[in-house]
Computed example of a mutant assay.
Amino acid sequence: MVSAIDAIRLRAAESPATTLRGLAGLLLPWALAAYIAYILLWYLPFKFYPDSYLFQVLEDWVGLSWFEPYFRYFTGCVEGVTCLLLFVPGLQVAGAAVAFATMGTAIFLHLASPLGVDPYHDGGVLFREACTNLVFAAAILVIRRHEILPLLQRLATDPRFAAFLRANT
Rank of each mutant, 00 (worst) to 15 (best):
R72G: 10
E68M: 14
L23M: 14
L126Q: 09
A24S: 11
G22T: 04
S15F: 12
E147P: 02
A34R: 02
R154G: 11
E14G: 10
S3E: 07
S65Y: 06
P150M: 06
D51P: 10
R128Y: 06
T19N: 09
C77L: 14
L64S: 11
M103T: 06
G124H: 08
L27A: 06
T75R: 06
D51C: 05
F71H: 05
W66N: 07
S52E: 01
A101V: 11
V125S: 09
A4V: 14
G63Q: 07
A162L: 05
A12C: 03
N133Q: 07
N133P: 04
F87Y: 06
V81C: 11
L32Q: 01
T75W: 09
G63W: 00
L26P: 00
A7F: 04
Y49P: 04
H121Q: 14
M1W: 08
R166P: 05
Y53M: 07
C77V: 15
R154V: 15
L58V: 06
R9N: 11
A97Y: 08
L149T: 01
A167R: 04
A138I: 02
H121E: 04
A137Y: 00
Q153R: 13
T82I: 12
F71G: 02
S52W: 05
E147A: 10
A106P: 08
D158V: 12
A138K: 01
T18F: 10
W30K: 10
A162I: 04
F67T: 06
R21C: 14
T102N: 12
Y49V: 14
V62T: 04
L27S: 02
W30D: 03
A17N: 12
I143K: 13
G95V: 00
R160S: 15
V135T: 10
D60R: 13
L151Q: 00
G80Y: 03
P89R: 08
F136H: 01
L91C: 14
C131A: 15
C83S: 13
R11C: 13
S15P: 09
F108L: 15
I5L: 10
A7C: 09
A130K: 00
Q56S: 11
A138P: 09
F74S: 01
Y43H: 13
L152P: 04
K47A: 12
Q92I: 08
P69F: 15
Q153C: 13
L111M: 13
R72T: 12
Y49A: 11
F100G: 03
P89I: 05
T102H: 09
H110R: 03
R128I: 13
A163C: 07
S15D: 15
L152T: 03
T132V: 11
L165G: 05
W42C: 09
F100S: 08
N133T: 04
F127N: 06
Y120N: 14
G124Y: 09
P159K: 04
I36H: 01
C131D: 00
